[in-house]
């Protein structure tokens, strides 16, 4: 019972790490980026290549995956995404679906369509056996990283001058620009960090949810549920939504295997009907 709850929490944390970048780009910058999963997939593949072909230690591979994906995000943001901030949502949807199609085909071409996997280092294998529950070491690491990332992001967003400049730029970019805030670089950096976190999530997720070229399509709906249900006003909402989704998904699959995904979609529709702006936001 508690073990299932913990697995659900770990899965939720993984979803949060994967989706928190999207919570920033979609939630705050109001850019409908369906290609977020493509960045996560990039991180996953970078990690598998590093571990399997280059024999880089796992804990070293994670920051590299983060940086590599962030660089890719920065590159794409500067060249392509930057023109679309002012476009309508439909253009953004089409553009990012295009990116998804391209990434899926490109990864299939270079890496093949089979499932990827790697060997975890010994100290992350096995479980802690506590009195009531047994905790997988790897999942414990994921939970710890999820909490750490939430705290770091929340501090950056709320306490630093970068965070306040970002929030200003998001609320009204013309006025922010008028006040001397350089909106472009701020958005680029934010986008890069968001992509990097997706890459980190993809790297962490290989062990839990697997990795194959269809990853961006398979998990697109999950990311979007996290952000829409969580609301677009901050990071706490998406965090709670990821936990809810993770627990509901794991518990649903375990206790009611026949109606597992049923519960999630019903839950999403009900929440969106009750609170169209998301869980935590005030009704408008």
């Amino acid at each position: 019972m508690l073990t299932i709850l913990f697995d659900g929490v770990a899965y939720g944390m993984l979803l949060f790490v994967l989706a928190c970048g999207l919570a920033v780009t979609l939630g705050l910058m109001n850019f409908v980026n369906l290609a977020h999963g493509a960045f996560a997939m990039t991180g996953g593949y970078v990690t598998t290549v590093l571990l399997n072909d280059w024999h880089v230690p796992f804990l070293m591979a994670l920051p590299i995956a983060f940086l590599a994906t962030a660089m890719l995000g920065l590159l794409l943001e500067r060249t392509l995404y930057v023109r679309l901030y002012t476009c309508g949502h439909l253009d953004q949807v089409l553009f990012s679906i295009g990116i998804v199609f391209m990434s899926v085909a490109a990864v299939t071409y270079f890496m093949g369509s089979q499932q990827q996997s790697f060997q975890l280092p010994a100290f992350l294998q096995g479980r802690f056996e506590l009195e009531l529950l047994s905790v997988g070491r790897y999942r414990a690491l994921v939970v710890a990283m999820g909490v750490a990332i939430l705290i770091i992001l929340q501090v950056i967003l709320m306490k630093t001058s970068f965070g306040s400049r970002l929030r200003a730029a998001v609320d009204d970019r013309r006025v922010a620009r008028g006040l001397g805030i350089s909106v472009g670089p701020i958005f680029s950096l934010t986008f890069a960090i968001g992509s990097g976190l997706a890459g980190l999530g993809g790297a962490l997720g290989v062990e839990i949810v697997g990795l194959d070229p269809n990853f961006p399509l398979k998990f697109m709906i999950y990311f979007l549920i996290v952000v829409t249900v969580g609301g677009t006003s901050g990071l706490i909402g998406p965090f709670l939504a990821s936990l809810l989704l993770g627990i509901a998904d794991v518990a649903g699959k375990y206790y009611l295997p026949d109606t597992g995904s049923f519960a999630i979609y019903t839950l999403m529709i009900v929440v969106l009907l009750m609170r169209p702006q998301g869980l935590l936001s005030k009704a408008q």
Binding site: T259, L272, L273, P276, Q277
Partner: peptide, 28 residues
């Protein structure tokens, strides 16, 4: 009545959700 409220994003999600639900029903 589900698509009357909310932003574009909410509508996208609700329409995707309805389709997935019906797909699940047909599957089960």
């Amino acid at each position: 009545f589900l698509v009357l409220r909310g932003s574009d994003l909410t509508r996208l999600m609700v329409t995707i959700g309805v389709t997935s639900l019906l797909g699940e029903i047909a599957n089960k």
